[in-house]
Nucleic acid binder design. Sequence first.
DNA 1: TCTCAATGTATCTGTTAGAAATATCTGGCA
DNA 2: TGCCAGATATTTCTAACAGATACATTGAGA
Lengths: 178, 178
Amino acid sequence: MSRSSQTQVAVLGALSVEPMTAYALREAIRDVLGHFWSESFGQIYPTLQALEEAGHVQRRGGTRARSSVFVITESGTARLIELLNEPVQENPPRNGLLLRLFFGRVLGRERCRELLRGARDAADAQRAEYEQLLARLTAEEGDTPDFPYIRMTILAGIHHSRAAAAWAGECLETLQDP
Amino acid sequence: MSRSSQTQVAVLGALSVEPMTAYALREAIRDVLGHFWSESFGQIYPTLQALEEAGHVQRRGGTRARSSVFVITESGTARLIELLNEPVQENPPRNGLLLRLFFGRVLGRERCRELLRGARDAADAQRAEYEQLLARLTAEEGDTPDFPYIRMTILAGIHHSRAAAAWAGECLETLQDP
DNA sequence: TCTCAATGTATCTGTTAGAAATATCTGGCA
DNA sequence: TGCCAGATATTTCTAACAGATACATTGAGA
């Protein structure tokens, strides 16, 4: 399968929660999906236009004076389900930290230790953030039908950041001065 | 660091190990750095041209009529060290699995469970692969100066895949039929 | 009223992945 | 010898994409 627009999934998914403007769409994607997804205006506007032409969303209140609110249509919901059912598309790995550590001999031992300490601290901070977010969401929306699914995405962040911190700590131990 | 410089790190780093052709470069990046980095021909050739113009690599006629072997120069090594010392650049997150799970209510519970089972099995398989690779490298190159650094990148893979499997397992438990 | 921040729309530039198109070399086989 | 398959090698194209910029509107407070 050739490369398909992943942006459509995020856009249609967000609009399936509630109708909103392109600007609000970008805000929602950044604030709600931000831990595992990102979109830019340069993607959102053309995508909305394509979706409108395909009949998957409708533009409402399109007067120049005020904003256009986009509403997902029936065919848009069908398209979303279709896209969600397509196989998960892995994006190519690009981990700048590991790239630097791989050439660690060139970079130098002490500089590597700095990078590892930074990674460990960042991971710890991120885990605290995820746990706080999970506690807040559990209290506020713990009984909504979407909660179990949203919770899984936060759990992923917790597991991931915990593993990252443990890895960095282990590496720091093995990278002691000889 | 501009985004294009990221490719330069991988290219110069690979050439710092040994001179090779653009084709071999792509093979090396895929096979050796593949777990945390990727480059395509569309990136490698223009990057090599830019590096040649800047004097960071030299093109040498290979054994074949049209094959060029690229050698890193002294200024190229300096450039590599400079690039390695620049701050790590995070690339925007795009996790297709989490995007699907977030809209899990639309996708359906059973389909989510399938995705999670797939993720768990993939993570388990990947962890086995990493552990095998680590064992082989430890035996074959355990006493080379680069080994401690390469080992860290494999350890990262092990930690990450272990966390991914644990996460998927935990999610599967909470996503039992009610 | 002014002004500033937030909201909102649109587009531009350069980066990148992925694949296609095209050679050229190498070894095996008739 | 000549031919073929597959590996090696180079180049180029398209669409996806990030990030920035430019601009217009609105509403709240000074």
